[in-house]
Every structure is written in C-alpha cells, then in structure tokens.
C-alpha cells in the first residue's frame, strides 16, 4: 500500500511539474471530443445511417472509445526501453521491489488518473453538448463488458511490454513502437467503429487481436453482439494474452542474459 501511495504522489507531482503540458494534454483531449462531435454531426447531416449506426449510437461509440482508449492505452511502459538503453535499469534491478511490480503499480496509478480526468471531461462534454446517451443496462452485459475491458488492459500491457523489451537488442525501439501504435490505433476501433468498413476489410481486421482493445468492449456495452459471441472473442483474446505473456517472459530472461548495462 505504501508503494502505491508513494507512486501516486510521484505521478501527481510529475503532472504538476509541467503544468502547461498537463493543461494542454487534457485540453487536447476535450478538443478531440469536440472535433469528433462536429465531424460526425457533419456526416449525419447528409445521411441518417452509417453502417449499423444511427447518430445517437455513433455519438455513444465515440464517447466510449474516448474513455476506453484513455484507460487501455495510457501506459508508462515505454520508459522501460529507455531504461534498458541508458543503463538506468541497473538501479531498478537493485531495488528491493521487483521492476515489474513497480512498473505495474505505476501503470495502475497512471490509468486511474487518466480514467478520473477522462470521466470529468466526458461528463462535461455530455452536459455542454446535451448528448443523449442510451446505455443497455443489463447485468450480464455489464459483467462481460468489464471482463472484456480487463482483457484489453492486460493484452495491451503485454504487447507494450514486449515492444519495450526489444530495447535489450536495439537502440531503435521507437520504430517498432511507432508501427505498433499505428496498428493498434488504426485497427482497434479507437477512431471509428470497425464494422462500417467494407465487410472483407472488417473481417480481416477482426481476425487480429487489436479489435479486442476498444471495438469489442463498446460493442458489448451497446448490445450489438450476443453474449456467446463476446465470450468467444474474449476467450480468443485470452489466448493472445497468454502468448504475449510467455513471449515477454522469454524476452526478459533472454534479454537479461545479454544485458551489458551499456551507458552506465
């Protein structure tokens, strides 16, 4: 518990150290909502339905994608690669707390902050723009939604970890990180519902693990998929989680053997 409180304090003071940076970051998030609202409003001026979505459903989708993206994709794991490259990892290896425990707590604290601010922004946005949100309140759907969100969080954590661990073998982790970022952002449904794409493209994207990160949780919450289908998708996603878990474990063990603490 002490560790969590300490990291929370550090994270908070990090945010406050560059206040303008923090303000602009949150302001940008709010603008993002405003822009998407205007974009979709313009689109629905000329058509009543885009794919399976009417105007209200698309608003709900982009609001939820905003929240889920902030929760799932906020991560500090990218720092691990620079720790490896610069030799700072040595300090972490000498700490009485395991590096993964430390980074996982950092992740949780960071995600909690993000979720807190996202919710404030969303509520403010819904209030200001008078957006009607219709939520399918069904216990089973909510439970499966939480399960899918948890699965998305864990999957993203291990994907991100694997990319950072590449730092053991290369100084240019930014390139695979950029590619992963693009793939995840474009193919997870964080910008738009994937099923408005042509069917063949949608099926191709849906076969990849990325759609589980944003698209699936929202589909469940909107009641657009059956519970059985959702559970199958979540089970497949857990297989991906296990794969990435073992891959990261393998990379960590192999990486530590070749680690020379270059830069210290």
């Amino acid at each position: 518990m002490k560790l969590i409180i300490t990291i929370t304090k550090i994270t908070f003071s990090e945010y406050l150290a560059y206040r303008m940076n923090f303000i602009l970051w949150r302001f940008r998030n709010f603008l993002y909502l405003f822009f998407y609202y205007n974009f979709w409003t313009a689109v629905y001026t000329y058509q009543k339905q885009v794919g399976n979505y009417n105007k209200q459903e698309i608003f709900f989708y982009f609001i939820m994608s905003f929240v889920i993206t902030d929760i799932v994709f906020s991560s500090k794991l990218f720092k691990l690669a620079s720790y490896i490259n610069s030799g700072v990892l040595n300090q972490y290896l000498l700490y009485p707390v395991s590096v993964f425990k430390l980074m996982t707590v950092e992740e949780v604290v960071d995600k909690t902050f993000n979720t807190f601010f996202s919710l404030i922004e969303i509520l403010l946005f819904i209030y200001l723009f008078k957006i009607e949100v219709f939520l399918k309140i069904d216990f089973y759907y909510i439970a499966v939604f939480i399960l899918s969100l948890f699965c998305a969080l864990v999957l993203y954590y291990f994907i991100s970890l694997c990319i950072s661990l590449l730092g053991f073998w290369t100084n240019s982790v930014w390139a695979p990180r950029f590619l992963t970022f693009i793939l995840i952002n474009s193919l997870s449904g964080s910008f738009f519902p994937l099923d408005i794409l042509p069917k063949s493209v949608f099926e191709l994207i849906n076969a990849l693990p990325f759609s589980v990160l944003v698209y699936l949780p929202i589909q469940i919450l909107q009641g657009k998929v059956s519970l059985d289908f959702a559970l199958v998708k979540i089970s497949i996603a857990f297989v991906w989680v296990i794969l990435f878990f073992f891959l990261s474990l393998f990379m960590w063990k192999k990486g530590l053997k070749s680690y020379t603490a270059l830069g210290v």
Partner: peptide, 27 residues
Amino acid sequence: YNRVSSILFLIGKIVRGIVAFTFFFSI
C-alpha cells in the same frame, strides 16, 4: 543507416493512410 527502423516507420505510415482512406471511402 537504420534501414529496419525506416521500413517499419514507412509501413506504419502506409497502414495509417490506407485505413484512413478506407474509412473515408466507406462513409
């Protein structure tokens, strides 16, 4: 010099462009 990185970077940009185009085209 960083050929692999450059190729990954290029692939990322192309994927982003294709997805954006497909999205706008769909709408």
